[in-house]
């Protein structure tokens, strides 16, 4: 096996460096996926039928908290990878735990918000606008959920095995994914909530 010691741990074997490249390609596909969902939302956001509009529905409080949590979690995730590059296992794990907890917090707020919408009579079935809103937000939320499960699995492996080629590689790829979810949220925040509130 060819091992290039000049690279960071997660890139050292050819297989692992291919995995990172492959994951970037997958993120490319994810960008297309979310772009399509945004296109659907932009097509349907005025088509509210008999249901409420975004302006009537959105409340800025929860959204600001969601944004704060997710953006900060992206920062702590970056710190975690930085600690990993320095070979510091415990700080890395702490940063990752913080990241995942903030992810959970984000999910909690999002689920509360969905429940509130439904109580106000704004369901998936009410109008095309709400269908596209729920599916866009839900797809992002599902990604966060999967990310939390995945990240927890990786944390257990890092705890057991320490930093190896493999665990470093997995942690790094997870961080790419987590940052990506953050980027998507910035678009949701700007073009769904801010635009809807205006």
């Amino acid at each position: 096996m060819k091992i290039n010691d000049t690279l960071p741990l997660e890139y050292r074997t050819e297989e692992n460096s291919n995995k990172i490249f492959g994951f970037w390609l997958f993120l490319g596909a994810e960008i297309v996926l979310f772009s399509t969902l945004f296109a659907v939302y932009f097509t349907l956001w005025n088509r509210t039928g008999n249901g409420p509009t975004g302006k009537e529905l959105f409340e800025v409080g929860g959204v600001i908290w969601e944004t704060f949590l997710l953006l900060t979690s992206s920062f702590t995730c970056g710190l975690g990878i930085h600690a990993m590059r320095l070979g510091l296992k415990k700080p890395m794990m702490i940063f990752f735990v913080v990241t995942l907890l903030m992810g959970l917090g984000f999910l909690g707020i999002e689920i509360t918000e969905f429940v509130n919408y439904v109580h106000e009579g704004a369901t998936l079935q009410t109008s095309a606008f709400l269908s596209s809103l729920f599916v866009l937000l839900g797809t992002h939320g599902l990604h966060v959920t999967m990310g939390i499960l995945w990240g927890a699995g990786i944390l257990i492996q890092v705890g057991r095995q320490g930093f190896t080629d493999e665990t470093a590689n997995k942690s790094f790829i997870f961080s790419l994914y987590w940052h990506f979810l953050d980027v998507v949220w910035i678009f949701i925040f700007s073009f769904v909530y801010l635009k809807g509130l205006m």
Binding site: T126, S127, S131
Partner: peptide
């Protein structure tokens, strides 16, 4: 979206409630 429309009753491609 097709599955949501058919299985969960969403309104993406319907003829009423703003679907297109």
């Amino acid at each position: 979206l097709m599955m949501f429309d058919r299985v969960f009753g969403s309104q993406f491609f319907t003829m009423a409630n703003g679907g297109m």
